[in-house]
């Protein structure tokens, strides 16, 4: 554990703290500007990881129909033999496509320590307590001229960056968490694949709402500097994801934004295919309805809802095509 702590401190925290401090020293002694520039630098440096993650996700998405077919094939077979067969068929499919099912998590896993380190670095470079200030001295490299600038000026656009967002002046104290949540929502939307079955769709929808709400609520109690960093990081992330991901349109509340004519048409086709697939599933569900009354009523209601949604989606797609 001590070794891991050493790696964390020396490999992540110290370089980040020193980089932030150096930027402060050379960028007009303005901590807000140094956070912004550092965020952009980190995001740009991580573009190769983002590209890798995007490619993996695209490959996985392309495999979805074939995966669904395998799932359907073993739908009613619960015995261990069938499960093993399903698992090996799935793995063969992944191998054939050159995809690691958890491979797209790799870049995310690598990014996590960077985000957490940045979060800690911001807090540590803006100490508000005597012990925080004393501890900061141990983080500076001896050659870093910025160590003589401590304590850093924390004012940026009239905000004390060390204050919690809740303490920032009105209405920014409420606007900032909302902006952070909204930008996180767009980021999550952009980075999620189109789920093939209803259960996955439902889980995805929950995740798409839960994460932004969580981050928005957290932001209210975060130091303002961190709130600004998350917001900016999301905005830069949206731009990077947009261009790295081949200018895919952003689907927000059923409407498509941005994207090229080609990518928009692709997205519409994918949505239509999904809606039709849902329709087919609903129909087959209806035929199989043999449960007791209450279950049957519930399922029928759900089916009606799904059908309505699919119909609406088809209509919208048709309108767009015209």
């Amino acid at each position: 554990m001590e070794f891991l702590g050493l790696i964390w401190d020396q490999g992540i925290m110290r370089p980040m703290i020193n980089a932030l401090a150096l930027l402060y020293h050379y960028l007009f002694l303005n901590y807000g500007v140094s956070i912004i520039v550092f965020t952009v630098i980190v995001r740009v440096l991580m573009i190769p990881l983002t590209i890798r993650q995007t490619r993996q996700m695209k490959k996985l998405q392309a495999l979805q129909p074939r995966m669904k077919a395998i799932q359907d094939k073993f739908k009613d077979k619960k015995d261990p033999e069938s499960r093993r067969a399903q698992s090996s068929e799935s793995m063969a499919l992944y191998r054939e496509a050159g995809v690691n099912p958890i491979g797209c998590l790799g870049p995310m896993v690598i990014q996590m320590p960077i985000w957490i380190g940045f979060y800690r670095a911001i807090i540590r470079t803006m100490p508000t307590t005597p012990e925080g200030m004393a501890n900061l001295s141990a983080s500076f490299y001896a050659w870093n001229p910025a160590s003589a600038d401590v304590p850093f000026s924390r004012l940026f656009l009239g905000i004390d960056l060390a204050d919690t967002v809740s303490q920032v002046y009105l209405p920014l104290n409420f606007v900032l968490p909302v902006l952070v949540g909204a930008s996180m929502f767009i980021t999550t939307k952009m980075s999620s694949t189109i789920a093939m079955d209803e259960r996955q769709q439902s889980q995805q929808r929950i995740m798409q709402w839960m994460m932004p709400v969580m981050i928005g609520v957290f932001t209210y109690q975060f130091p303002a500097g961190l709130g600004i960093y998350i917001l900016l990081s999301n905005i830069v992330g949206v731009f990077i994801q947009y261009f790295v991901g081949g200018r895919q349109p952003i689907d927000l509340f059923g409407k498509l934004y941005l994207g090229t004519a080609e990518t928009r048409a692709e997205a519409i086709a994918a949505k239509t295919a999904l809606a039709e697939r849902n329709q087919d599933n609903d129909d087959s569900d209806e035929e199989e309805t043999t449960d007791d009354d209450s279950t049957s009523i519930h399922r029928q209601e759900r089916t009606r809802g799904n059908r309505r949604r699919a119909r609406n989606s088809r209509r919208r797609a048709r309108r767009r095509r015209h």
């Binding site: 929950i206 709400v213 969580m214 609520v217 957290f218």
Partner: peptide, 9 residues
């Protein structure tokens, strides 16, 4: 999830 988020915050 939001309640959990608030508690976690």
């Amino acid at each position: 999830a939001s309640v959990l988020a608030i508690l976690s915050a």
